[in-house]
Each structure stands twice: as structure tokens, then as C-alpha cells.
Design a binder for these strands. Structure first.
Lengths: 203, 203
DNA sequence: TCGTTAGCGGAGCCGTCGCTCCGCTTAGAT
DNA sequence: ATCTAAGCGGAGCGACGGCTCCGCTAACGA
């Protein structure tokens, strides 16, 4: 595998950035021509670098999965039981910042599969850790954490364009649901979604 | 507006049922021809009854909104503070049973808009009621309930095909997050999603 | 029973979008 | 400075999906 010519490598990066932007703005249904134009290159260039639109999307998904893996590893270094909460918020930030391929991120897709399993394992370990520290109620399982992630994805997908931080409020409430009996509810730091914003989405 | 001929009316119903089925199975991207075949009618019949694919979808959305309005009204009759919880579960059941146009249900769309506002008002009233009864913590606002609904939609959208009741577990945890400080956490009645099912979705 | 007309089916039209092809350009080695 | 092959752009091809059109059928009032 010879290294790419300098201009070609630069165009590749531009394409990825443009695709991220375009798909985030107009959804994955956006046309490839729009991506090429946003990157300032021709269709030929796009298809020389990525054999299909799907491959382009996969590249974005792969990058995102690797970034998430990074986060999962740093979360694992925390030993005080706060890693789970930290990782959930960090993952939320990442996803809210790059909402282009959210669905694909957590659905069956062959890119970087080992990253996904390692991330899942990290979440399981962090959950056990939190339960050991008494931060999370004992009847919660690791698939419940998966549900938490999926729900955040759904919230970002719905509200992201209008209220990019609304997912935090949702996550805070959800984490409150994971607290053991007897613990007082933590105050909510993220302000509630404004009714106007909600109306803008629901119509 | 003259009433439809008997066979025509029957075909209209068949089309709605078929569309619901097909869209639920293959998403809204499913072709109109598939819908027509599932209904056992020709394309002409479909387009005589519904001027566009969008109109067909809107009809489904409208029906769902009206059914939901029904539920919201019955929930309002409960005066013991349990209406909110009841309505959330009832709405979840309805949505899980008819996942065809879930996204459109709660997004800007001009069909039956007054139903949507009435439903939203009902949720707000039920929330106030629950807070008066001390079932829900006081710092929760009505847009938080909107977030709850959106998150359920997201969960059903993700897990519906593999685990049609997983959303209940999620809702139970979320409701636990709404409980005031000091109240013990209610036990979870819905079993956790199996790791195998989760893996089937995430890959 | 008979006539009228709403209703029916499905081949095909047309716009869209993913993708390819090929003649020109230019980075980078010698 | 020169050469060459990797890279480039964008017109255009083919497939697909929403929608239309028109000759035939049958519901239903008289």
C-alpha cells in the first residue's frame, strides 16, 4: 500500500469532513454530489477514494467508533465508580458533535467490530464498578446501559438540530433512575428544554 | 363529499392496513408497489385513494394521533396521580404495536395538529397531577415528559424488531429517575434485554 | 334489466441518484 | 527540466421508485 500523493490525501480528509457536515445537516439521504461539492472536489475524486457511498459512511462510522473506544479506555482508568457516568456523558458529547451517522454507530455494521465489543465490555466493567461503589442500583444489567445509549441516540436524533444539549437533561434523569433506593436525587444541572423548542420539533 | 362505493371503501381500508404492515416491516422507504401488492390492489387504486405516498403516510399518522388522543383522554379521568405513568405505558404499547410511522408521529406534520396540542396539554396536566400527589419530583417540567416520549420512540425504533417489549424496561428506569428524593426505587417488572438480543442489534 | 359512471389494474413515463469513464492536469522522482 | 503515472473533473449512463394514463369492469340507481 503506497502512501497517497499529498493532494490526494488532503482531498480524502476534505471529503470525510464534508461528508460529516452534509450528512449531519441533511441526513444520510443527502446526495453524493452534494458531498463532493462541499469538499470542493469532483465526483471522480470521491469515488476513487471511496468505492461507494456506503464505504464513505462506513469510514465515518469507523472513525467515530475508534474515538469512542479512546473515551472508553480513559473511562476505565477511573477507579472511583464514576467512570460509567463519565463515559455516558463523554459519549453523548461525541455523538451530539457528530450526528451524521448516529444510527449506524450502534447498529450492525462490519466496520471496526472489535472496537464495538471492547466498548461494550468497558461499559459492563464500569457498571460493575459503579455497583460495587453503591452508585448504581444492583438490579441494573449491562443491557440496560445499552438501552441508555440507544435512548440518548434517539434524543439527539430528534432534538439535536434545535437543542444540541437537551440529551444531557435526559441522561441526568435516566441516571437518577439508576440510583439505589434511599439515595437522594441529584439536582439537574442541564436546564429543561424550552416549550418553544419542543414545539418547533413536534409542530 | 359523496360516500365511497362499497368496494372502494374496503380497498381503502385494505391499503391502510397493508401500508401499516409494510412500513413497519421495511421502513418508510418501502416502495408503493409493495404496499399495493400487499393490499391486493393495483397502483391506480392506491393513487386514486391517496394522492401521494406522503398522503398515505399522513393518513396513518393521523389515525395514530387520534388513537393516542383517545388514550390521553382516558388517562385524564384518573384522579389519583397515576395517570401520567399509565398514559406513558399505554402510549408505548400503541407505538410498539404500530411502529410504521413512529418518527412522523411526534415530528412536525400537519395532520391532526389539534390532537397533538391536546395530547401535550394532557401530559402537562397529568404531570402536575402526579407532582401534586408526590409521585414525581418537583423539578421535572413538561418538556421532560416530551423527552421521555421521544426516548421511548427511539428505543422502539431500535429494538422493536428483536425485543418488542424492551421499551418497558427503559421506561421503568426512566420513571424511577422521576421519583422524588427519599422514595425507594420500585422493582423492575420487565426483564432485562438479553445480551444475545442486544448483540443481534448492535452486531 | 339496463345505463351510467365510479372504480380498477398495471405498463410505462420521468425525475433522481449512485456510479463510471475518459481526456486533461500536475505532483514528485530522476 | 523532463517524464510519467497518479490524480482530477464532470458529463452522462443505468436502475430505481413515485406517479400517470387509459382501456376495461362492475356497482348501483332507475
Amino acid at each position: 500500500m503506497k502512501p497517497l500523493r499529498r493532494d490526494a490525501a488532503e482531498n480524502r480528509e476534505r471529503l470525510l469532513a464534508a461528508a460529516n457536515q452534509v450528512f449531519a445537516d441533511h441526513g444520510l439521504d443527502a446526495g453524493v454530489e452534494e458531498v463532493a461539492q462541499a469538499a470542493g472536489v469532483g465526483m471522480g475524486t470521491l469515488y476513487r477514494r471511496f468505492p461507494s457511498k456506503q464505504a464513505l459512511i462506513d469510514a465515518l462510522v469507523g472513525n467515530l467508533r475508534l474515538e469512542l473506544l479512546e473515551l472508553a479506555r480513559s473511562a476505565g482508568e477511573r477507579e472511583d465508580g464514576s467512570g460509567l457516568r463519565w463515559l455516558l456523558f463523554a459519549a453523548g458529547e461525541l455523538q451530539a458533535a457528530q450526528p451524521a451517522c448516529l444510527q449506524r454507530l450502534w447498529r450492525h455494521s462490519d466496520v471496526e467490530p472489535e472496537a464495538v465489543t471492547e466498548i461494550r465490555q468497558a461499559f459492563a466493567d464500569l457498571l460493575a464498578d459503579a455497583q460495587r461503589h453503591g452508585t448504581v442500583r444492583p438490579d441494573v444489567t449491562s443491557t440496560d446501559i445499552t438501552l441508555v445509549i440507544w435512548s440518548i441516540v434517539g434524543i439527539i436524533d430528534t432534538t439535536g438540530a434545535v437543542a444540541p444539549t437537551a440529551w444531557r437533561r435526559h441522561l441526568e434523569l435516566l441516571l437518577a433512575g439508576l440510583r439505589p433506593s434511599g439515595q437522594p436525587a441529584a439536582g439537574l444541572t442541564e436546564p429543561a428544554l424550552s416549550p418553544a423548542a419542543a414545539a418547533a420539533i413536534t409542530g
